[in-house]
Design a protein around this nucleic acid. Sequence first.
DNA 1: CCATATAGTTCTAAAACAGAACTGTCAAAT
DNA 2: ATTTGACAGTTCTGTTTTAGAACTATATGG
Lengths: 170, 170
Amino acid sequence: MKWKELEEEPCSMARTIGVIGDRWTLLILRECFLRTRRFEGFQSALGITRHLLAERLKKLVRQGILRRIPYQESPKRHEYILTQKGLDLYPIMMAIVHWGDTHMVDERGRPLLHQHRKCGKDFDPVMVCSECGEPLSAKEVHTHPGPGARSTPPNPASAASKAKARSRAA
Amino acid sequence: MKWKELEEEPCSMARTIGVIGDRWTLLILRECFLRTRRFEGFQSALGITRHLLAERLKKLVRQGILRRIPYQESPKRHEYILTQKGLDLYPIMMAIVHWGDTHMVDERGRPLLHQHRKCGKDFDPVMVCSECGEPLSAKEVHTHPGPGARSTPPNPASAASKAKARSRAA
DNA sequence: CCATATAGTTCTAAAACAGAACTGTCAAAT
DNA sequence: ATTTGACAGTTCTGTTTTAGAACTATATGG
């Protein structure tokens, strides 16, 4: 499967992974949320090769997750800032950080804490149901096909798997 | 930067990405949450090559995200089920799906809907503050170093970036 | 005229991945 | 008893991606 195919699958998760599902993209986005805006800033913070950084930034701009805006003329320079679509990735980032805080910390504890300005306290992110407000866990959720589902719905199998089915039949 | 180095960075996000931050791993985990348990199941659902699937499953087992348990003797066969550590990835999965539902759907609408058993309704996942229960957005959150932070904290720069600093100095 | 800052692009070698075929164990069918 | 098929991998070869380093371009300041 190619990256482009992923974005066309009838599965919101596959499509999202097609856009942000590689390690450098996720780390670049982490930097964005930590207020990094410029090429050199990303490069020195992450140690990513300049080549890949340029490519990933282009892709994020194409996807409408970052906007490239000039901050000076001569020489023309631009910085990268999150669009609303990009800001909406925040729950994904927080969910990833929180899992790491829970399962991947060493003796020294968490590298970063998060303070909620509204209530003033350090917090953990909690995922709740939009309808009843109760915290969610996998076992309390039932998945069923929506309007955009394909004909054989529960398994969002790819073109690749259909190809395989054909080759088995042959 | 190598994958192994990522897991040792003083950043919960980098560490988590070191474990689950590649496209196949994320898709395999999606299948796990959709109740797939067996090698052939993953393979035909995803169209992943058998080689990579075997490797990814091994890694997930090593990381304690999946457990490999026998379901029959002769021939010995195993299935892969999520541990608690694996189940705890659920908010990440839901956050990814929800972003895709919001920003990546086509005219036909969402491929999958989620129903909360407790309240019986189709829902969206919402991320809230553990302390005050209010929904979170990036701008309301202030990040500050925790006990596991390195000396120069806000920028969780890697060994790679330090190496770069040295080579610039030389 | 040289060094520095910024934002890239280009090159080569190494690593990861895709696609296909192959191995091994057993049960059921012929 | 031999063949077929299911299952869970492993091994091979060739392509794609990534790493690492050097190079380009535009401008400022000394």
